[in-house]
Simulated scan of single mutants.
Amino acid sequence: MAGEVFFHDEDEYWTPARRHRALDLFFEERMRSRSNVDGNLLAEAPDDFYHEVVSFNRTQRGKSGAVVRGFDWKLSQGFLEDWAEWLREYCLKRSVSILWYQRRNLLRQHLSHRDMKKTGIAMVKQGQAYRRGKVSLDTRTLLSELRARRDLNGRVDRLLEHARSLGVRVKSAYYEDLLDDAKKLHNVVAFLLKGTDCLVKPRDLTSQLRNRKIHKGPLGDLIKNWDEVRDVLLQSEFSAMAQP
């Protein structure tokens, strides 16, 4: 499993056509260096893209059995934009499975998103050092941002339900559940491996997956201006989230 391929696109480099070609390269397994790119479509792609794809391909070289290829695609990186244009048919043609992975708590989703934009860190692996600082949230825009995130989640749910009806393999999972429940993590791994030629058994792979929370603990310990945030939440439909 690779990490993010498209990363934070501050220069707006990634277009639907470039993302399409990037996925072709990723799934073709041929790219061992930047010079392997065909044509000029991705000639100026960010270095992070090449580093992630090339390093993933190199780690798989020489391994026996089939390699199940996957990566982390954030909603902010064009997933919804690409779906109708080319991604829907791509998933059907290549039998791509989709895991819709999110936090259960909407405020924690928002907190993680804000912190990720600031630090560029989406996940910390076991043994990796990471010092988390408190995050300040803009209370002037908090409610509109939470509503927008709620609407976005609903849009993705509907899109993936339609994808499932077309024959795309789709599964939803919550971040907190996979950290706390080994059985649910095993079920996700089994879903991703089902129908592939991978020789690794789900239970063996599950035992190797050890990620840890970045934003753990009470919200009051994570949000710098928690008192202000709490007051705003209590006056809205999100009052149930106003627990420290």
Results as ranks from 00 to 15, higher is better:
residue 193 L to E: 02
residue 193 L to V: 15
residue 193 L to Q: 06
residue 193 L to D: 07
residue 193 L to Y: 07
residue 194 K to F: 05
residue 194 K to S: 11
residue 194 K to N: 10
residue 195 G to Q: 07
residue 195 G to S: 06
residue 195 G to A: 10
residue 195 G to M: 11
residue 196 T to G: 12
residue 196 T to F: 04
residue 196 T to L: 13
residue 196 T to P: 14
residue 197 D to G: 15
residue 197 D to Q: 14
residue 197 D to L: 13
residue 197 D to K: 15
residue 197 D to N: 15
residue 198 C to V: 09
residue 198 C to P: 05
residue 198 C to Q: 02
residue 199 L to P: 00
residue 199 L to T: 14
residue 199 L to D: 01
residue 199 L to E: 04
residue 199 L to C: 06
residue 200 V to A: 10
residue 200 V to Y: 06
residue 200 V to F: 11
residue 200 V to E: 06
residue 200 V to M: 07
residue 200 V to K: 03
residue 200 V to Q: 02
residue 201 K to P: 00
residue 201 K to G: 02
residue 201 K to I: 07
residue 202 P to I: 09
residue 202 P to V: 08
residue 202 P to F: 08
residue 202 P to S: 03
residue 202 P to Q: 02
residue 204 D to T: 09
residue 204 D to N: 13
residue 204 D to K: 07
residue 205 L to W: 00
residue 205 L to V: 09
residue 205 L to T: 03
residue 206 T to A: 05
residue 206 T to K: 05
residue 207 S to V: 12
residue 207 S to L: 05
residue 207 S to A: 15
residue 207 S to I: 08
residue 208 Q to V: 13
residue 208 Q to K: 15
residue 208 Q to T: 14
residue 209 L to C: 05
residue 209 L to I: 15
residue 209 L to P: 01
residue 209 L to T: 04
residue 209 L to W: 02
residue 210 R to P: 00
residue 211 N to M: 08
residue 211 N to P: 04
residue 211 N to K: 09
residue 212 R to P: 00
residue 212 R to E: 07
residue 213 K to I: 09
residue 213 K to F: 04
residue 213 K to W: 06
residue 214 I to E: 05
residue 214 I to R: 12
residue 214 I to A: 04
residue 215 H to I: 09
residue 215 H to D: 07
residue 215 H to P: 01
residue 215 H to T: 08
residue 215 H to N: 12
residue 216 K to T: 06
residue 216 K to I: 01
residue 217 G to P: 05
residue 217 G to I: 10
residue 218 P to L: 03
residue 218 P to E: 01
residue 218 P to S: 03
residue 218 P to F: 09
residue 219 L to C: 13
residue 219 L to E: 09
residue 219 L to S: 10
residue 219 L to W: 06
residue 219 L to F: 12
residue 219 L to P: 10
residue 220 G to M: 13
residue 220 G to N: 14
residue 220 G to A: 13
residue 220 G to K: 12
residue 221 D to W: 08
residue 222 L to V: 12
residue 223 I to N: 03
residue 223 I to F: 10
residue 223 I to M: 07
residue 224 K to P: 01
residue 224 K to A: 13
residue 224 K to I: 13
residue 224 K to L: 14
residue 224 K to C: 12
residue 225 N to G: 14
residue 226 W to M: 08
residue 226 W to T: 06
residue 226 W to Y: 11
residue 227 D to L: 11
residue 227 D to A: 15
residue 228 E to L: 13
residue 228 E to G: 04
residue 229 V to L: 01
residue 229 V to C: 02
residue 229 V to F: 06
residue 229 V to E: 07
residue 229 V to N: 01
residue 229 V to S: 01
residue 229 V to D: 06
residue 230 R to H: 06
residue 230 R to A: 01
residue 230 R to Q: 08
residue 230 R to L: 00
residue 231 D to H: 10
residue 231 D to T: 14
residue 231 D to Y: 05
residue 231 D to K: 15
residue 231 D to S: 15
residue 231 D to L: 15
residue 231 D to Q: 14
residue 232 V to T: 08
residue 232 V to E: 00
residue 232 V to P: 00
residue 233 L to I: 05
residue 233 L to Q: 02
residue 233 L to G: 00
residue 234 L to Q: 08
residue 234 L to R: 04
residue 235 Q to I: 03
residue 235 Q to W: 00
